[in-house]
């Protein structure tokens, strides 16, 4: 499906290009209300900075891996993502006396959909990463090298094994990882979407 990018897609491109000039606009224009939101809800500006950074890094990965195209204004999309991330963080901290001041930001269906897309992307990446860490050290090392260095010939050379062995091992390790993901609870929750 070809999607028409919103003009705010420049912010997504800036993340991909690490363009500090354009990125500074995100901080200048959109971040202060996130800081206020976090501070009004049991957080401080350090928390807000973390939330903003984590959100931006997630969007970066989504753009990198999935060619994410922003089709709605960045402002509302970004604000909602940060807000929900902060609410999750509060839940994690087990904050009992949370008084959530909800503001009435009107949001379109399309924006909601883009926010969800990003959140599902992140949940999936986190699941994959945590299962990856459950693999044995040998498998982790082999896969990491494989994905960093694209050529399997070189990988074999670096690890001091034959090409055939490296290929076979790679599929084995990926197979194991596939099993771990498939049998996890989180995967079944994600599948519901």
């Amino acid at each position: 499906m070809i999607q028409k990018p919103h003009e705010d897609h420049i912010y997504i491109e800036a993340l991909l290009k690490n363009d500090s000039r354009v990125l500074s606009k995100i901080y200048e224009k959109f971040s202060h209300k996130i800081v206020s939101y976090v501070r009004n809800n049991n957080g401080n500006s350090d928390d807000a900075q973390d939330i903003i950074q984590e959100t931006l890094v997630t969007i970066y990965h989504q753009a990198k891996e999935k060619n994410f195209v922003l089709t709605c204004p960045f402002d509302a999309y970004f604000y909602l993502l940060c807000k929900r991330r902060w609410l999750n963080e509060l839940k994690k901290r087990g904050n009992k006396r949370v008084t959530i001041l909800d503001d009435t930001t009107s949001i379109t269906e399309e924006q909601e959909q883009q926010v969800e897309e990003t959140e599902i992307f992140e949940k999936q990446s986190q699941l994959f990463e945590s299962k990856f860490k459950e693999l044995g050290a040998k498998c982790q090392e082999l896969l990491k090298t494989t994905f960093k260095i694209k050529s399997m010939e070189k990988v074999a050379e670096i690890l001091g094994v034959t090409y055939g062995y490296a290929r076979k091992k790679k599929s084995q390790c990926m197979g194991k990882l596939t099993q771990l993901v498939k049998n996890s609870n989180e995967f079944h929750q994600l599948k519901a979407y």
Partner: peptide, 12 residues
Amino acid sequence: TTLSKLGSKYLK
């Protein structure tokens, strides 16, 4: 690195 720099510049 860029984001932390911008964060401390604009938010704190």
